[in-house]
Design a protein around this nucleic acid. Structure first.
Length: 477
RNA sequence: GUCCCGUUCGUCUAGUGGUUAGGACAACGCCCUCUCACGGCGUAAACAGGGGUUCGAGUCCCCUACGGGAUACCA
């Protein structure tokens, strides 16, 4: 009982990890991080990263959710090896393993009804004792078996310590008497979660189980199952959960969104990957790293034990960084795709070209693709542009009068380039006895309808002579 | 109730007995500047509390508080 079972992981065997979500919703951010850690650990060591869909709860599992998980993983760039495995499809194997356990005496038939169990628990609670159900069937033999449905329970040790040697949590010792004889096969013959997981992980050759620390006590139970089955225990790593910005468990209100929602909010997958990797894991002072570097550096042993909060502001900052780094062409494509998803497709090839051309000036000014689209309003929108409140102030009588004097000079510029236009506007400002800003601001407002935009001379060039003069002529006199 | 895990600037973290407790995001200020950004420079900001151990503790031990998780014929 005290012998340490041989580990399923060894130096000469390649690492095999798995991500095992239940398809009851989208791929939420905590799951995404768990998947990322599994992926990084396996792929960083030339191992395999498998995907198993835990769909044994038929009522709650949906094919749509499975698709959403696939999509989320793909978007994040976390490709899995081979086909995703449906846990439900393996019930025969689970049953077979349970039968073997029954035969070997590692498990027993329990005929207690749910009502009986509930009554037992209530009595225990009332007596101030732990509400662990102790089945009276544990030591009964075939002679006592009624002709009734039964559940199969693991014959768990009633005393001693169950040790879990965890790569993140260290040695965790759980008193056996706080664990019950868990059911491994329900009375309808279907396997329970803890049992199916063990059988599947074993059959899939999983060497390292990396999952949320909400499974830590399950780890003790599963260790018991491995032992009963005589199988080596995989290495385990229970990583802390991610909390919401208020420190409480993640909920939809603060970040427990599906991967697709991050895409819709204009985040780049590499930014989310970087952010997620840094939650609970670090490598000295390095904040920003490529996926290649993460693959090289990541080690599950370096993951901390305390829960981290999901900080949107930080993700924004990181996203801004990755947007600045990204290729203009890719950014334009992603933005255009996002615009379409948002119901505002940009079909005019001229606008699409202008967006690409203006990208260098756009991308340093935004943190998300959504902001980028908004900032590119002067390109994507159509004349006439109605100025917003701030722009309106700049286009007061004085501003408009100034522009009416500037416009003919602009019209006379034969070489429509940023340098020449800037020289012209500067000369004009000087002639008017004004600082450049006094001219540039109204001009920007007239051209873009906003008080902020990329450099006004770049705007002039992007839009082109005719469009600019047209917008200037749209101003009320 | 019981069991398990956690607690360093607002946030993410570095730190493996001897540090002016470092970095990043956010905040604030300055510079750059046609706006907003980007970029640069700088300011402010933390070891949950209490006991030990030790010449010396953020680092080791214990207790308390607080937070989280688990206690299902859910996964």
């Amino acid at each position: 009982m005290n012998r340490m079972p041989a580990s399923a992981a060894s130096a000469d065997r390649p690492v095999v990890t798995r991500f095992a979500p239940s398809p009851t919703g989208y791929l939420h951010i905590g799951g995404a991080r768990t998947a990322l850690f599994n992926w990084l650990y396996a792929r960083g060591r030339g191992g395999r990263f498998l995907l198993r869909i835990e769909d044994t709860d038929r009522a709650r599992s949906t094919p749509e959710a499975t698709e959403a998980i696939f999509d989320g993983l793909r978007w994040l760039g976390l490709e899995w090896d081979g086909e995703a495995i449906s846990q439900f499809s393996r019930v025969d194997r689970h049953r077979e393993a349970a039968e073997a356990l029954l035969a070997s005496g590692g498990a027993y038939r329990c005929y207690a009804s749910p009502a009986e169990i509930e009554a037992f628990r209530e009595a225990a609670r009332a007596a101030g004792k732990p509400p662990l159900f102790l089945s009276p069937w544990r030591d009964r033999g075939p002679a006592d078996w009624p002709d009734a449905p039964y559940a199969v329970r693991l014959r768990a040790p009633r005393e001693g310590i169950v040790e879990v040697d965890d790569l993140v949590q260290g040695e965790v010792r759980i008193p056996a008497e706080t664990l019950d004889d868990l059911i491994i096969l329900r009375s309808d013959g279907t396997p329970t979660y803890n049992f199916a997981v063990v059988v599947d992980d074993h059959d899939m050759g999983v060497t390292h189980i990396i999952r949320g620390d909400d499974h830590l006590t399950n780890a003790a139970r599963q260790t018991l199952i491995y032992r009963a089955l005589g199988w080596p225990t995989p290495e385990m790593a229970h990583v802390p959960l991610i909390h919401g910005e208020d420190g409480a468990k993640l909920s939809k209100r603060h970040g427990a969104l599906g991967a697709h929602e991050y895409r819709a909010m204009g985040y780049l997958p590499e930014a989310l990957r970087n952010h997620l990797a840094r939650l609970g894991w670090s490598r000295g002072d390095t904040e920003i790293f490529t996926t290649e570097q993460a693959l090289e550096w990541f080690d599950i042993k370096d993951v901390g034990r305390s829960a981290a909060r999901f900080d949107f502001t930080r993700l924004q900052s990181l996203n801004g960084h990755y947007i600045r780094e990204a290729e203009d062409g890719r950014l334009a494509e992603l933005s255009l795709a996002l615009a379409e998803e948002r119901g505002a497709p940009v079909t005019d090839p001229k606008k699409r070209a202008m967006l690409l051309e203006a990208m260098p000036g756009l991308k340093t000014r935004v943190k998300t693709l959504v902001e980028l689209l908004e900032l590119a309003h002067y390109i994507l929108g159509d004349r006439p542009f109605s100025p917003d409140a701030n722009a309106s102030k700049l286009l007061d009588e004085t501003g408009r009068a100034l522009l009416s004097r500037l416009t003919p000079r602009l019209a006379d510029v034969s070489d429509w380039r940023a340098e020449t236009l800037e020289a012209e506007v500067r000369a004009f400002a000087e002639a008017e006895g004004l600082k450049l800003g006094k001219v540039a601001q109204p001009l920007r407002a007239a051209l873009t309808g906003r008080a902020q935009s990329p450099g006004v001379f770049d705007v002039l060039v992007t839009l082109g002579r005719d469009e600019c003069l047209g917008r200037l002529s749209d101003l009320p006199v």
